[in-house]
Design a binder for these strands. Structure first.
Length: 551
RNA sequence: GGCUCCAUGGUCAAGCGGUCAAGACACCGCCCUUUCACGGCGGUAACCCGGGUUCGAUUCCCGGUGGAGUCACCA
């Protein structure tokens, strides 16, 4: 077989030599230990927490080492393109604090190793494919979908491994004439790898290969024997081939990807070897799991829309909280570090791939919420106010007028009980925050809770009218509370909870019950920060009004 | 089904041949307290099973079992 002729027959339009690309995309001029990582999303526009989790690893590895983190769009599947998806991905990641040094961006490609859209790199891939054909490392395959299905059926019948390999690879050894005639008939073809591996032997002879994984250590896997598709009929490469060519030419040093790629690692290893390129360091991350029917399951794009990044954005989780959570599940020593350095910026933590867990991590909303509380309590009210406004503008437009123009009011509310050495940790995410402070806004104020059981309706009225009567907006907190004690006493409630505990028979309840009545009249619920402070913000008129309403 | 990965409390997760087997979340109790939080103290709760190796295995090896992933002209 004259491979030279074959290569020309198949790719007459390709005139460049691989060496030219090597020159255009030289080794990067960076310090020896600088890591080059990339995120390669397919533009379905959907990106979930699991993607962010992986992206974080990329970002940390690159930026901690003075390397490069770039964005490459893996749009080799034309059936799955979604309009505006790239923008959505970029803005999502940006929101959560992930920035790229290079690659696809809102303003177009950035950097010297582009184009960064795989769909625009057809000529590059074909150049390498042509070279492989020329060397006898690849060949055209004209099998139709039906033929492939037949092969599979027969393999299933014979209980052999499915796939296109060895003796099943029907077009592996077509003659040049045969190929020529099929081309003349305009038959479409794919280009396949002529795999050097063979499983067509006794089990113990199957060659195993070892790969050092950054997270998992030494991986021992059987070598590849599949004649996988390199180039699809439309001239666009499959993921496997695009990955190898791109990560080589873009000089990626660390390939971070989910564990679902582990089974195809042998393919990639063979490709790198065939092309005689050094292997990048693979880091196969554990999958983020979800509990379903008592079993853990990998997060899925289709099945778990509630785990899309947009879900967290719309619920109003603060990006810093999400990052903090991700970091704690990403590196087992992060939490410990955080306890020792509660105020250090996240970026000063030294992230290491070796500290990553390699079993699936269950996504834990409780934990996220808890972490979120700790994160939010440290954010100044002023900043929280801006955060709430930005959130409302995107996801809750009816609240915008409530906030904008009344920032001072909002800031006061958000700052309630947060000073001192035991600040309240009431806030978790925007939706919840607004719910929590909603009683400050008449349109959203509602009375939900009932008076305590030990307080009769008559007593409640008596307490409230006495409260209204003695109310002086200028009282300081102590004066105000002394009045409450008086009201408690005159109505048969203990002025101090301890008195009540000592002699429960002497009282109907204690001062706490009295304040609860007032609290419910004012806020509509039995849980809230300090009543006096709330009244100061609410103002005298509104305070009195609300008491009046229930009398 | 083949292949691969994984296996410590409900969840996340330290551990790397000898520990009373950390810690965090959740849960429960107590304290603080005018409510709810916050905070403090305490509590319930774990090494999948069976063989080895060893003076000694959660830790190393083998075999089960269980879970997950993957077997496309999708990534």
């Amino acid at each position: 077989m004259d491979y030279n002729k074959l290569a020309e027959l198949l790719f007459p339009h390709i005139t460049k030599e691989p060496a030219e690309y090597e020159k255009i995309y030289p080794k990067r001029n960076l310090p020896a230990n600088a890591k080059i990582t990339r995120l390669g999303p397919s533009p379905t526009g959907f990106i979930h927490l699991g993607n962010l989790y992986g992206a974080f690893v990329d970002e940390r590895l690159a930026h901690q080492s003075g390397g490069i983190f770039y964005l490459r769009i893996e749009d080799t599947d034309d059936k799955r393109q979604v309009e505006g998806a790239v923008e959505a991905i970029i803005s999502s990641l940006e929101f959560f604090g992930l920035t790229f040094d290079e690659g696809a961006s809102m303003e177009g490609d950035k950097g010297d190793y582009g184009p960064y859209y795989q769909s625009q790199r057809a000529e590059i891939y074909q150049t390498y494919v042509k070279q492989m054909i020329h060397r006898g490392q690849a060949y055209p395959c004209f099998c139709t979908e039906e033929e492939l299905a037949e092969i599979r059926e027969e393999q299933e019948h014979l209980k052999e491994n499915p796939g296109y390999y060895g003796k099943w690879a029907k077009h592996r050894n077509l003659s040049l004439e045969e190929i020529k005639s099929r081309i003349d008939q305009d038959q479409s073809f794919v280009v396949r790898l002529r795999s050097q591996g063979t499983h067509d032997c006794a089990e113990e002879e199957i060659k195993m290969i070892s790969v050092e994984d950054g997270i998992r250590g030494t991986l021992t896997i059987p070598e590849n024997d599949q004649d996988i598709v390199l180039l699809k009929a439309n001239g666009i490469p499959t993921y496997h081939f695009a990955h190898v060519v791109d990560d080589h030419l873009m000089r990626t040093t660390h390939v971070v990807r989910g564990a679902e790629w582990l089974p195809s690692l042998p393919i990639h290893v063979e490709l790198f070897q065939t092309l005689d390129w050094p292997l990048p360091i693979y880091c196969h991350t554990a999958q983020l799991m979800k509990m379903e029917d008592g079993n853990k399951r990998k997060l899925s794009k289709r099945k778990d829309p509630e785990l899309s990044l947009d879900y967290y954005r719309s619920e109003g989780y603060h990006p810093k909280a999400v990052r903090e959570y991700l970091l704690t599940i990403l590196n087992s020593n992060y939490e410990e570090w955080r306890m020792e350095s509660p105020d250090a910026p996240q970026s000063s933590f030294e992230f290491t791939v070796g500290k990553m867990s390699n079993s699936g991590t269950l996504f834990d909303l409780d934990k996220l919420n808890d972490i979120s509380k700790d994160v939010l309590v440290k954010i100044p009210a002023q900043e929280l106010c801006q955060f709430l406004i930005a959130w409302a503008k995107s996801y809750k437009t009816e609240l915008v007028d409530l906030f904008v123009g009344h920032e001072t009011y909002l800031v006061k509310i958000l700052d309630l009980g947060r000073s001192g050495n035991k600040p309240r940790k009431d806030f978790v995410f925007a939706t919840q925050m607004f719910e929590f402070i909603s009683y400050f806004y008449d349109d959203y104020f509602k009375r939900e809770d009932a008076y305590p059981e030990n307080v009769s309706t008559e007593d409640a009225k008596a307490i409230l009218s006495a409260y209204l009567e003695s109310y002086d907006h200028n009282d300081d907190q102590t004066q105000w509370f002394n009045k409450i004690r008086e009201i408690a006493t005159t109505n048969g409630y203990a002025a101090k909870p301890k008195d009540y505990k000592k002699n429960p028979g002497l009282y109907k309840g204690h001062v706490g019950d009295v304040s609860t009545v007032i609290r419910i009249a004012l806020m509509g619920r039995s849980m809230s920060p300090d009543i006096w402070e709330i009244q100061q913000i609410l103002g005298e008129r509104k305070t009195k009004e609300r008491i009046h309403e229930v009398l």
